Each structure stands twice: as structure tokens, then as C-alpha cells.
Simulated assay, not measured.
Amino acid sequence: MKHYGKTLLALGVLALTACQSAGKPDAAAAGADAQNDTCGASQYQSYVGKPLSAVSSLHFDTPVRAIPWNSAVTMDFNLHRLNFLADKSDTITQVYCG
């Protein structure tokens, strides 16, 4: 009976391995990311690593949310809102739409 269990386990692992998707993104996926950048977050990626206070001197055409570390924010999703997320040291770690 023990051999059947090991065989079934090995067969299950092989079956899961066969279900893996391709690791490389294609050109269509890159185009979809560009479409999802409705708030223009890609233009502000250079602010990652800068202090969160750097955002206050900028003028935006879209809604903006500067999120300090450990602060409460609403969970509503707005594709046109630009979010600047900061860490404990008040440094911007992520810029994203949502």
C-alpha cells in the first residue's frame, strides 16, 4: 500500500508541474499594462525612494492620494487615482493607480 501512495504523490506533483503557465510575458501583456496605466503612474516612478513630502509640491490633473505608513485608507478602487505609498521612514516605496 505504501508504494501506491508514493506513486500517487509523484503523479500529482508531475500533474501540477504540467499546469504551469509560460514564464515570459508577451507583447500583448505589455500593451495591457500600458492600458491599465490610466492615472499616469508610470510617469512618476522616479519618485520611488524620495520622501513623501516631495509629492506636495507637484500639480496633478488626476486625483492623488499620498499614503503614509500604517495609515487607514478606503478600499475603493479608482483607476484614475494616483497613489504614492510610503514606508516607516516616510520614503515612497510604490506609485500605482487605484
Rank of each mutant, 00 (worst) to 15 (best):
M1L: 14
H3I: 15
H3K: 13
H3W: 14
G5T: 14
K6F: 15
L8S: 11
L8Y: 09
L9K: 07
L9I: 13
L11E: 06
G12I: 01
V13C: 13
V13R: 07
V13W: 09
A15K: 03
A15L: 15
T17P: 00
T17L: 15
T17H: 07
T17W: 12
A18C: 10
A18I: 05
A18V: 05
A18N: 06
C19R: 09
C19G: 09
A22F: 04
K24E: 11
D26M: 05
D26Q: 08
A27L: 10
A27R: 11
A29S: 11
A29Q: 14
A29L: 11
G31A: 13
G31E: 10
A32T: 11
A32F: 09
A34E: 13
A34C: 06
T38H: 04
C39L: 05
G40P: 01
A41Q: 03
S42Y: 05
Y44E: 05
Y44D: 01
Y47M: 11
Y47W: 14
V48R: 08
G49K: 09
G49S: 07
G49V: 04
K50G: 04
P51V: 03
L52W: 00
L52H: 01
S53E: 10
S53Q: 09
V55E: 01
S56M: 04
S57P: 00
S57H: 09
L58A: 11
L58M: 15
H59D: 13
H59P: 00
F60H: 06
F60L: 08
D61Y: 07
P63M: 05
V64F: 03
P68T: 08
P68V: 05
W69T: 08
N70Q: 14
S71P: 01
V73T: 14
V73S: 12
T74F: 07
M75T: 14
M75Y: 12
D76M: 07
F77R: 12
F77T: 13
L79A: 14
L79P: 05
R81L: 03
R81Y: 06
F84Y: 05
A86C: 13
D87A: 07
D87T: 09
K88S: 14
S89I: 02
D90K: 10
T91V: 13
T91M: 12
I92S: 01
T93D: 05
Q94H: 14
Q94S: 13
V95P: 00
C97W: 03
